[in-house]
């Protein structure tokens, strides 16, 4: 039983080390078509210097709407949870 534990530990450690060594280098993705499009066209189409802001509020606006709705639901549920014990 103890031998099995040690063998599992060694195999798992080898797996983690192999995964860490086989990662691809930092900042070099395989597919970069959308990145190139956003970097080349965001300043012309949405007239914003900050490409992250133009993606969050213009290209992917529905994501931001869902995020705001999630926050609203969290506040509603917290007020609903503490309604009986407030002073």
């Amino acid at each position: 039983m103890k031998l099995a534990k040690i063998a599992f530990f060694l195999i798992f450690t080898y797996f983690l080390l192999a995964c860490a060594l086989l990662l691809r280098p930092f900042g070099k993705p395989i597919v970069s078509d959308m990145d190139e499009y956003f970097i080349l066209n965001a300043q012309r189409e949405s007239a914003s210097n900050n490409v992250v802001a133009s993606i969050v509020f213009d290209y992917r606006g529905l994501d931001t709407l869902g995020e705001a709705t999630v926050l609203f639901a969290a506040v509603s549920s917290i007020v609903l949870l503490f309604r009986g014990v407030s002073k």
Partner: peptide
Amino acid sequence: TAGVIPLMNFLVGLEVSCALTIIVLTM
């Protein structure tokens, strides 16, 4: 510059600050 992005920034900032303050105030 940037069209509706500054207006949306202002509205989302107002919403987030009020929401997080309500959580702390209620608790």
